[in-house]
Each structure stands twice: as C-alpha cells, then as structure tokens.
Design a binder for these strands. Structure first.
Lengths: 153, 153
DNA sequence: CCATGATATCCCATGAATTCCCAAAAGGCG
DNA sequence: CGCCTTTTGGGAATTCATGGGATATCATGG
C-alpha cells in the first residue's frame, strides 16, 4: 500500500502545471493507472488526492453503506466531484481551474502527505492549518508511534 | 523488534550529511526499506526517529479509523511532518534544513537511543535536557512499568 | 465536413539539489 | 602494532523541479 509522507511545496507555472513530488510519484507508479485522483475536501479549503487504487478502495467502502441512505448519497456525491489527473512525462499534473480556485492555489501548491492519501493546499493556508493541528496534537499527547486506544499511559 | 541504545555524537558535514550510528543501522537493516523516518518532536527541541516499519504500523492503524473523522484527520496530520530519510551507501542521512533548524543542529548531531525509537538532538541541548530529566527522575523516585498481563515476552 | 482557435500534451533544455562512488582519517580490538 | 570497522570528506554523475517552444487534440462556429 502506498504511503505519502512529508510536505513539498512546488510551483505552478503559467500553464497551470505542478510537479507531483518524486517520492509521491514513486508510490503511484506501481499502479496500472498513471496519475492521481483529486476531489475537493468536505471540511477544508484543500484538495484530497490519492492514487486510483485509493478510489477503488473508497468505492468498496461505499458499498458497505446502505444504499439510498443519506450517508450513501453524500459519499457517492464525492465521486462525482473527483477528477483523474494524468501526469505528463516530467511528472507534472495540470490543476483544473475550479479545483485550484477552491483551494486558493495560484502560483504554488503544497503537497501534504497523509499516509494512504495526500492533500494539496495553498502553502500559506496550510501553514496556518498545520500550526493549529500541531497544537491540538500536542495537547492530546500524540507520539511516535501514537498510543494504541486502550493502552492507557 | 529494533532496540536503540546509547548515545552517539556524529558530525554534520557541509552538505548536511550525518552518519547514522552503525549499531542503529544494524537494527534498521532487517527492514526492507533502508533509512529512517524522522519528525519534529511535539514537546522537545529534538527530532523523533525510527525505522520505516513504525510508520507502516501507523498507516495500518489509520486505516482502521473512519476517513473524514476528526480522529483520522489529526492522526494523518502526523504524516505531513514526517520525512523518510534514506541512507547513502556509507550509512549517512541528509538532514533537511528545516528539521536541522528545529533542533538547532548545525555541525554535529547526537543520536539518542530510546528503546524502540531514537531521537536526534543538538548535543549540548541534549546534555542539559538529560541532566534535568535525571534530576527529576531521582527526585520523584520513578519506577519502571511492570509487564502487562497478556502481552508477549 | 472543414476551418479555427484555444487548450492540452509532448519534447527538450537548464540549473539546482541530491545521490553515488572512491578514498582518506579515526577509532576499536586482538 | 597492525587489521578491521566506522566515520568523514570531496568530486562526479544523476535525479528532480521548472521553463519554454513545438506538436497534437479538442470544441466551436461556419
């Protein structure tokens, strides 16, 4: 299973292209489908992304929900919002205008590893968000590795 | 299970490379991935580090949480701050500038064994920290956790 | 069905940063 | 005292991000 780590900030050129970090690409190439799949995050001003296999996984999970339930509908709506972005030979993607706009991305983009998936942010917006999350994590005392649920300190 | 013991101080050369202590490497080589995973400690001016397997475990645990839940988010945020640092053939890693800066590391780094993981410190900062911790432990008369029922030897 | 313009894709070039490779110092051990 | 492992150093080769020009693809209107 692919694992996306660390944060990389790359430039968006005037044609709207951005390099996907090489280490992310390395996680993606094993797939049959080249490129990434992206959709707008529910909660955050950012884009959720992953390999094609990740979306297949989400599709399988969706099937565990009851069809015609409200939950099912809202998640299946996610798939309507997804776009598959192919990589060019140099490993870049073209960020469609509507997605870039949603995330507020203009001249550079932060690729943020999140384990099995990753996100794409406007760098400064991410920096603020990251600071908040880090403060919370500190409160909660998350460590490396995080304590297992049930394994009280 | 890898166990990291003792403290080693190695030099950082002008390219930003440091040797990982040979005994640490010996603990890491059994893994498929050569190299270590590092992130900034929440509480301390130091870097937390471990083998790649630690991180895979985190990723697996993350998969057991519901995506888009708050718990999932704060957990996956840890990955954004982690960096996988591969070893070169001589057993060195490249310490990225932002991490080195966070720990105040410039020309030498202390690798501090911490059992299943280890830390990387600026040597003098670590010396002070070490002294404090020992003093506190003595004061409090710390005890070591007993074995839990049901856990393997 | 063709012409036209805009968009997207490919291909190559450049500079910077990283990684490899070889080799010398330093330290440990018999 | 000499051998072996480990650390350290630097030059060469490679990878990577980025930019621009040329070519292909698509949608639109005629």
């Amino acid at each position: 299973m692919a694992i996306f780590l660390s944060t990389y900030v790359n430039k968006v050129d005037r044609k709207g292209r951005v390099s996907v970090p090489a280490s992310f690409r390395a996680q993606l190439t094993p797939q049959n489908q080249p490129g990434i799949v992206v959709f707008r995050s529910f909660k955050l001003p950012a884009l959720e992304a992953g390999g094609f296999d990740r979306m297949e996984e989400m599709s399988r999970r969706l099937e565990t929900l009851e069809q015609f339930s409200e939950e099912y509908d809202s998640f299946s709506a996610l798939f309507a919002d997804m776009q598959q972005l192919p990589c060019d030979p140099e490993g870049r993607i073209m960020l469609p205008g509507d997605l870039a706009e949603y995330a507020g991305i203009t001249d550079s983009a932060a690729f943020v590893g999140g384990g099995p998936t990753f996100q794409i942010w406007q760098p400064q917006v991410f920096a603020r968000h990251q600071a908040e999350v880090r403060a919370k994590a500190k409160e909660k005392g998350l460590t490396f590795p995080a304590r297992r649920p049930g394994e009280g300190s």
